[in-house]
């Protein structure tokens, strides 16, 4: 996956040159376009807006919103809230970590899945809850969670 910024994006951002107050907006646009923010992208933003590279990187690493590595095609989010915790979210997390070979915050080598944990999703009646892409799945066992993730991946293989 190339992280070079497309010409359209550069043209879109050009009018903002020299205006540091647009830092977050430009970073969002880069992420929306490329999927993540690479060191080269940071350098581009730094030069364009006149913001030091240290400040750009500080902002990128501060907000959960920004990713510094390419993300998986699918995102699996596990709820960390109290109800889910009590309902066995820990076991689901361990099972998924083992099955996918990654820890929360990481992405599988083939860029298929990114695993994340999030604070309460507000679906406590369904505890424990897992969100795969846009879909909510509740009252899971570890085995069921793994199966759902596998189905998602193989569904992709079928479609693709």
């Amino acid at each position: 996956m190339s992280d070079l910024l497309p010409i359209e994006l550069r043209e879109e951002c050009a009018p903002l040159a020299g205006h540091p107050e647009h830092l977050i907006h430009v970073l969002r646009r880069v992420q929306e376009t490329v999927g993540f923010i690479s060191p080269d992208s940071e350098a581009f933003v730094s030069d364009l807006l006149g913001v030091t590279l240290s400040r750009v990187h500080g902002v990128v690493t501060f907000y959960h919103l920004f990713y510094t590595e390419p993300r998986g095609r699918h995102t699996v989010r596990l709820c960390r809230g109290t109800a889910c915790h009590v309902g066995g979210a820990g076991g689901i997390q361990s099972a998924l970590e083992e099955h996918l070979g990654i820890k929360p915050g990481e992405t599988t080598e083939d860029l298929a899945v990114t695993l994340e944990t999030v604070a309460c999703l507000g679906a406590c009646a369904l505890a424990p809850v897992m969100v795969v892409d846009e879909g909510y799945h509740g009252k899971l066992t570890a085995a069921e969670a793994v199966a759902i993730v596998d189905r998602t991946l193989s569904g992709e293989a079928e479609a693709g």
Binding site: F62, H64, R80, G81, T82, H85, V86, G87, G88, G90, G91, T117, A119, C120
Partner: peptide, 28 residues
Amino acid sequence: MSTATEVICAPQQALEALRAFAADGMCG
């Protein structure tokens, strides 16, 4: 790591609350 039993005690609740704060809301 806790059990799969559907119970939680006050210290664990406090721990989870702080962990959630540390992961999300706490700016540092």
